[in-house]
Design a protein around this nucleic acid. Structure first.
Lengths: 159, 159
DNA sequence: CAAGATTGACTGATCAATCTTA
DNA sequence: TAAGATTGATCAGTCAATCTTG
């Protein structure tokens, strides 16, 4: 029955971090995550497709998140002349500055809600276990998502 | 950055179980969980308040879940003469029978999406870690929710 | 007024359908 | 026709406001 706590624990930790981000810089956890991913690809930006895969939401969901961030002026949408179907999303200067403010808040609240309660050994044990779970279910762990990596092959999505 | 996977892993496992339950017996994961909790309190039933606390959703959320289950004829609402503010929710015969069908499906899909990928040691390590996280954040782990236990004191809720 | 629950408005996510470009 | 993205409908969850009973 331990698996039930997985969802509960994730919810408790995430909503704690969410509230802090929201009240401090006005972005949700999902929005912050996208800003982070964009910042490690500042040159090319990310395509909607990649965002959809990485964000674990549906294709339509990606559109909404980007809608909100674009509305707030934190990102831009650009469609290249070479392939006018694609849409590349990039951070704006404002987005970068918000991100700079958000990052320490994020780190601090993760520390408070997560790391603070666990030993280093437990954190790494947890990481290993979660990776197993993800891979066993056909999803790919995020870990360090380097710029040169492709968007997740089977994707972090299901169905 | 390992904490991100916590949400991802929970989502992957839960949605796998959800889909199986939904397609096999037409109840969502949250609904199944409520049915389970009700079945261990078949005599008294559960009060809306307790449901709200246990289900990690808001007070309003409990009303909606019960709405759906009552609509489907799986539970009844009864308000006792002694205290006409209270509403007690109980399983119907149909609810019990659905639960009987759902339980093996639930167990099998948890096995497939969760236990199957981990050793016994990992499962118990995970359980311990998650309990720490929950308690550290002021929530209470579910584990075995015995009939005689009160509704969670600080509750599984935050804010 | 306080406790218990419901309701309505809103937010976020998802799916299918659609629109546009290759 | 297929790839890439957006839109609309819908659904579950949350909060504040409300209604009812004590």
């Amino acid at each position: 029955m331990g698996w039930v706590n997985l969802g509960q624990a994730a919810h408790v930790v995430e909503s704690a971090v969410d509230r802090r981000l929201e009240s401090a810089v006005g972005v949700s956890g999902a929005e912050f995550e996208l800003l982070m991913r964009l910042s490690s690809r500042s040159e090319q930006g990310l395509q909607m497709n990649e965002i959809a895969n990485q964000l674990l939401s549906s294709r339509g969901g990606a559109t909404r998140v980007v809608d909100r961030l674009a509305e707030a002026g934190l990102v831009t949408r650009e469609t290249p002349a070479e392939n006018r179907r694609a849409v590349y999303v990039r951070l704006t200067a404002k987005g970068r500055s918000i991100l700079t403010r958000a990052r320490p808040i994020f780190e601090q609240s993760v520390e408070e809600a997560f790391s603070h309660h666990l030993s280093d050994a437990e954190v790494s044990a947890l990481r290993k276990i979660l990776r197993r779970l993800l891979e066993g279910n056909g999803a790919w762990a995020v870990e360090r998502c380097e710029p040169h990596l492709q968007a997740s092959p089977a994707g972090a999505k299901q169905r």
